[in-house]
Design a protein around this nucleic acid. Sequence first.
DNA 1: GCCGTTTTCGGCCCGACTGTTTTCAGTCG
Length: 535
Amino acid sequence: MTNSEIAAVFEHVADLLEFQGANPFRVRAYRNAARTLHDLTESAAEIVGDPERSLTEVEGIGKDLADKVATLVQTGTLPMLEELRAEIPESVMAVLRVPGLGPKRAAQLFHELKVATLDQLRAACESHQVQELKGFGAKSEAAILEGLDIASEAGRRILWIEADQHVQEIVAHMEGCKAVKKIAAAGSYRRGRETIGDLDFLVVTEKVAAVMDHLAQFAGVASVIARGDTKMSLRLAAGVQVDLRAVPAESFGAALQYFTGSKEHNIVLRGRAKSQGLKINEYGVFRGEKSIAGRTEEDVYAALHLPCFPPELREARREFEWADAGQLPELVGVGDLRGDLHMHSTWTDGQASIEEMAAAAQQRGLKYIAITDHSKRVTMVGGLDAKRLRQQWAEIDRLNPRLHGITVLKGIEVDILERGGLDLPDDVLADADWVVASVHYGQQQSREQITRRAIEALENPHVDAMAHPTGRLLLERKPYAIDLEAVMRAAATTASCWNSTPIRHGSIWTTWPARPPRVLASRSSFRPIPIDCRV
DNA sequence: GCCGTTTTCGGCCCGACTGTTTTCAGTCG
């Protein structure tokens, strides 16, 4: 059983326990363990099988959870989970996803009205049974009905690049409001997560009402969810929730820290503050009643004797451990890129010759590029067969001696065929410097079928990377965790495919986004930032 | 359920907002 599978079981247990109204700290223990196991670089099953070792050496896993992991590894099931499942129907979990319904109220609906599905919930609201319950009222009932309509949209995560478009538009709109002294986007967007759940904005203003009025007038707004003295939540027509928080200038740094998160990072931070006799909230760091920091993030972290973590590291994984050791990793930025490993030329659907590509890449500071035109299966752009590919490589061999300071690698974006297998024979691929495999056809197949094709392709020793159907790369199965150069290569590949929308830079056709993410990887993690699969 | 200890229990982050209350619980981030 893999770490991810064990983590999924613990997450499920946590959901069910929460619904049962279990001790919230017990629920958190399961969620923490799930996250820890998911991120663990070693196999939990192997640790269980090693008589010299114990899973309790992993932070957040005590005797009880270690035993449960052992049970899962040995039997494939967990009696506790089965018992919980027997008590609570699976469909109840969907009720928890309705905005405004948490475990307590969902459990109340289940026990008092036998609401176990979204359809039953709707019926109970429409027959006005819900407003009769203690703690509920007419407004709650109406809110649930509204929540049911957006239950499928709410909770959906969007890609960073989509979030970025909303952020740019909203910031531009808000900058048109005179009352806004300062505005910043926080949350998982600022942390550079691959996917974003909602958008968080902070503003410094002396006229909160005017700022909220202005935001409500943003063209993309569908509805206002809540509006108080300092906080406003609304939903865009695109389905994304936007939270706005107004803070005084002297609290801006504390608020930025707080709303950048992650939640888990903040929990650790608050615990540390507490152990130092301090209190930290979105208004500042306090010793007793006295504020000792808050205007900038640097001040806030410094007050806790911590470095100002780059937002990308604030996930409560290992950043505190690194900071304590004085070894906070340097992050790999776009300026660190030394190569681009996914490029097309006029040999297929590119818009510039190989020589032009090399010159432009060099101008941008790159040391190497790989030309990876399509293979023959992509007939509509004149994909290359073995003969033409070798002709292209001969051209590259003639070009390289004339270049100074940049190397052109001989590559190919080889197609993964509908029936499985690759579009070019192994002996051809063996002569390439860099092979990217891609699925272009047969995308109507089931996810399992496509995954099987992809995995089979990755098992081909000549394949170096894989482009996802959406243009993104799957890198996990490759041994990139070896050296910095490999990370650079992986990061370069990731960046060049960050956005599937081709953008022209001068005469050069590349897949670079207009605004590449600021950070691509952590130098010390020796891995590209994880691909987030929750979309 | 984990963890650390002035070490086997007691604490585990903190505040805003809403709706239903009449002082607060639930939800959310």
